[in-house]
């Protein structure tokens, strides 16, 4: 039942990606995301963090290397298949800008369901439940421009989780928020992901945000450095606790 010990949910091997003349964003990056795991990817700006996330989420395809999701090679899927996957199995949250300014919070959260052809009433009902979980139900009929940044991010989280995806990809989700609003967003994300058994790939340059994760890897010059567990803290470290919560979530 548990995928915790078995094959990872998503595995990336030797990813290389180059953008124009700006040099390589990724050069041989390897990373694995286990089911239900919260993994932080940190690194200086320009280290390739976002590009790694885009490759893993199937938003862009790497120049070289493989991204394996379940039995499938994500990097070899057609754009249409990857789009479908993003809608059903993945959710994305960015720093800002992913909400559609013309739609209300409720319609924004219901968007992936609407795109999949769910009836409007049903989609809105399910989205409403997720807004409730993230504490922004009171803002359901507001448009993104009429909310605070923290509220907008929580609506974005609701949208990312409304399809009950296997993995959520969050790129600097607290980057535009003050520390208290950022903390609320992170707490909401981590709790909900644990409850739903959703894996989270969290890209951030902020150590305090990264500390919400079970595990952390660091990117430097486009390659992944595993952040070693400190020897004297290995026994007490939280990550060994976390999977239990996750597994319980899986059963439910």
């Amino acid at each position: 039942m548990s995928t915790q010990q078995g094959a990872p949910l998503i595995a990336a091997r030797d990813l290389t990606k180059t953008y124009g003349r700006t040099g390589a964003a990724l050069r041989g990056a390897c990373v694995e995301l286990a089911a239900g795991e919260i993994l932080a990817v940190t690194g200086a700006s320009g280290s390739g963090k976002s590009t790694l996330l885009h490759c893993l989420a199937g938003i862009v395809t790497p120049d070289e290397g493989a991204v394996v999701y379940g039995q499938r090679r994500l990097d070899q899927l057609s754009e249409a298949d990857r789009t479908l996957l993003r809608r059903t199995d993945f959710g994305v949250v960015f720093q800002f800008g992913q909400l559609i300014p013309e739609l209300t919070a409720l319609d924004n959260a219901a968007l992936p369901l609407l795109l999949a052809g769910t009836s409007r009433g049903q989609a809105r009902e399910r989205a409403d439940a997720w807004l409730e979980r993230f504490g922004v139900r009171g803002q359901a009929e507001l448009r993104p421009g009429e909310m605070s940044g923290g509220q907008a991010q929580r609506v974005a989280l609701a949208r990312a989780l409304v399809t009950e995806p296997k993995a959520v990809f969050a790129d600097e989700p607290t980057g535009a928020l003050d520390s208290l609003a950022g903390e609320q967003v992170m707490t909401a994300l981590v709790h909900t992901a644990r409850e739903a058994g959703t894996a989270v790939l969290l890209v951030t340059h902020d150590a305090q945000t990264a500390a919400y994760a079970d595990r952390e890897v660091e990117l430097r010059d486009g390659t992944v450095l595993e952040v070693a567990e400190a020897p004297d803290l290995a026994e007490t470290a939280q990550p060994t606790e976390a999977p239990q919560v996750t597994e319980a979530g899986h059963e439910g």
Binding site: A207, Q208, A210, A211, Y212, A213, D214, E216, V227, A228, E229, A230, D232, L233, T236, A237, Q238, P239, E241, A242
Partner: peptide
């Protein structure tokens, strides 16, 4: 740094 980060994860949990 690894030790600091591990401690930060603990405190955050």
């Amino acid at each position: 740094r690894a030790a600091h980060k591990a401690r930060m994860r603990e405190l955050t949990a």
